[in-house]
Amino acid sequence: MQELEIVASRRRLRLAMPRGGPLGGVVLALAILLLFNLVATPHFISLQTLYVNLTQVTTIVIVAVGMTMVIATGGIDLSVGSLMAIAGALAPLIFAGRLLGIGPGPFADVLAFFVPVLVAMAFGSFNGWLVARFRIQPIVATLVLFIAGRGIAQVMTNGNLQAFHNASFHALGLGRVLGVPIQVWLMAVVVGLAAWAIRRTLYGRQLLAIGGNEAAARLAGLPVARITILVYAVSGLLSGIAGLIVIAINSSSDANLVGLGMELDAIAAVAVGGTALTGGRASIIGTLLGALIIQLLRYTLLSHGVPDAAALVVKAAVILAAVYLQQVGRAP
């Protein structure tokens, strides 16, 4: 009898959820946050507020897109923050002429954009290789670089802050095109390409098939190992891009702080955005909205004087609520 009551309660909760499924709930949550700030937060309607929130959310979105793909395969990537730190540490060393034996100049600037991203991508491939070839649990495989990656970045810089003045990197962090920050355009490109790949390409269908049932995917002849390595490589690549954006905004690179806690924000954005943490499904647009909710929630709490410690508790509660609503939505 009690079980019937539980099932009935879940059905009533599902009926009470907004139409459009989990994405409808995400849109509603974002709308409520916006409405609250419009009414209760001073100076919320201003170009400065919009600029601050957009520039702060871009890195979360870019990293969370890669995390969405990883989670869609049934995995997880804890190393994204450390890979951001590695990319952020490499770039100033390259364009300052302290690495690769190339003096400062335009060629060094170009290499400083591409080499750190490719190195982060290589480390991401290493994560995928551990998962695919050695069948190590993703949380364990990526924990290796979660710990060692930041140590690598700190060794490269001797743990020192690298302040720099480089016009190319300042443009990436502070430049605008048509009045919109360059990193926001970059975020839009990443989201658009990822959404297209998931929905319209063979790669996307294979990725979801692996997350839905890896054993069945193997029996169907899908290249499970190759797709898994590629997914983690993409996550590493996007982490590298995000690391460059962070140092460009700050005009400095600190291996101790770049990307710190980003893995939690990325996972939170994916969970809040409605992507099932068990794999087999992915919503890039949901992840974008989830990241906006995470950023706007942070801004709201800070604007109303809520301490950082309490803000972390609220963020954890939001993630818990998102995961619970996912389970309710799947329950019979």
Rank of each mutant, 00 (worst) to 15 (best):
A148E: 04
A153S: 10
A197H: 04
L208H: 11
P138M: 01
A194I: 12
V189T: 06
G204C: 05
Q154L: 15
R218D: 03
Q154R: 12
N166Y: 01
A167P: 06
Q183H: 07
A188S: 07
R176Y: 12
A167T: 12
F164E: 03
R200S: 13
R218Y: 14
N158Q: 14
M187N: 05
P138A: 05
G211L: 09
W185M: 09
G149L: 06
Q162H: 13
N166P: 04
V177E: 06
A209H: 07
F146S: 02
A153H: 13
F164M: 06
G151A: 14
T142F: 03
P138R: 00
L202I: 10
G212S: 10
T142W: 01
G173D: 04
A167N: 07
A153L: 05
A188H: 07
V131R: 02
G159I: 12
A163R: 14
A217I: 09
L186V: 15
R218M: 08
V184L: 11
Q154H: 09
A163T: 15
A209I: 06
R200D: 14
L174W: 13
N160V: 13
L208V: 09
L222H: 02
V144A: 12
H165V: 15
I139C: 00
L178E: 00
I147D: 02
H170I: 12
